[in-house]
């Protein structure tokens, strides 16, 4: 008994030690960022690292808002993210309902078309897409980014997979009760698909908020820039202001952190289930 008990303890100590060390390494860049954001630029690289600055420079967090239009960048990104996420949820769940519960000609062909493009890298057609948007006069508008992110095959696929798991009898019963398809979608499918909707929300939110190449190609006017490319502009303009750069980086991370922590259960479930289905 005792030996067995001790064995377990040594093993679990080893496990805890490994987990803690790995976690520390994983989180080290964030800790360093946070610590550097409260330092004067000349103190950022002082070694050994002073993790908790003796004189925290809270001023950094005041200065960044005036050095660059950080507030505007955050507003732009939030606007884009919210519109894209809403459109994505609405159109994906709408289309997914047809694919999962309705019959119509060319259903399988259309669905195959969607599936085939999931594997198609965006980078393959980003240039023709840009030329098309330019033709529409959408260059340097937020509408271009909304159009290219709001209608994804992935969203339709994810929602369709979830709807397939809802018993068709439910829809049939509702039809007998005199509901039309739109009512069934709105009153039965939508409320039942909250987990899938949450997964899609967080996926879309994170991708849109963190998107880099899209905004970089489309948005060259400062007043239109998102937080990612705005931050990148700030870094190239003030490359030696390490403290300020770190403070701006922390600010750029916070919204994602909040959304991630509050919806992480759905995120993890979503990753896991899309992984198994693939």
């Amino acid at each position: 008994m005792k030996i067995a008990g001790r064995k377990v303890t040594t093993k679990s100590i080893a496990v805890y030690a490994t987990v803690i060390v790995i976690t520390a390494v994983m989180l080290m860049p964030f800790a360093w960022m946070l610590s550097a954001s409260l330092k004067l630029s000349r103190d950022v690289f002082v070694f050994p690292i002073e993790w908790i600055p003796s004189q925290p420079q809270w001023q950094n967090y005041v200065d960044i808002w005036t050095k660059i239009p950080l507030g505007l960048f955050i507003y732009n990104t939030s606007k884009l993210t919210i519109i894209v996420t809403l459109l994505q949820l609405l159109t994906s769940s709408f289309a997914a309902y047809a694919f999962a519960k309705l019959d119509f000609p060319y259903k399988n062909t259309l669905f195959l078309g969607y599936i085939a493009t999931i594997a198609m890298p965006w980078q393959v057609y980003m240039v023709p897409q840009f030329l098309l948007m330019r033709e529409f006069g959408l260059n340097n508008t937020h509408l271009a980014l909304i159009c290219l992110q709001a209608f994804t095959a992935f969203g339709v696929f994810l929602m369709r997979q979830f709807y397939m798991s809802i018993p068709t009898e439910l829809c049939e019963a509702a039809r007998i009760d005199g509901m039309n398809e739109y009512q069934i979608w709105a009153r039965i499918m939508l409320p039942l698909s909250k987990p899938a909707l949450s997964t899609l929300t967080i996926f879309t939110f994170v991708t849109t908020w963190n998107d880099f190449l899209g905004p970089m190609i489309y948005l060259t006017k400062t007043e239109l820039k998102t937080i990612q490319i705005g931050l990148r502009m700030f870094i190239s303009q003030y490359s030696a202001e390490y403290g300020l750069i770190m403070a701006a980086s922390v600010v750029a991370l916070i919204p994602v952190l909040i959304v991630f922590l509050s919806l992480q259960r759905f995120f993890v479930e979503g990753v896991a289930s899309s992984g198994l289905k693939g």
């Binding site: 994983m26 989180l27 860049p29 964030f30 360093w32 960022m33 550097a36 994170v206 908020w209 963190n210 880099f212 937080i227 990612q228 490319i229 931050l231 990148r232 870094i235 750069i245 770190m246 980086s249 922390v250 750029a252 991370l253 994602v256 952190l257 991630f260 992480q264 995120f267 993890v268």
Partner: peptide, 14 residues
């Protein structure tokens, strides 16, 4: 998991 969702520009500069 957090590095995966963290903004690329922010973590790349760090």
């Amino acid at each position: 998991f957090f590095p995966y969702v963290a903004s690329l520009v922010a973590v790349a500069v760090v």
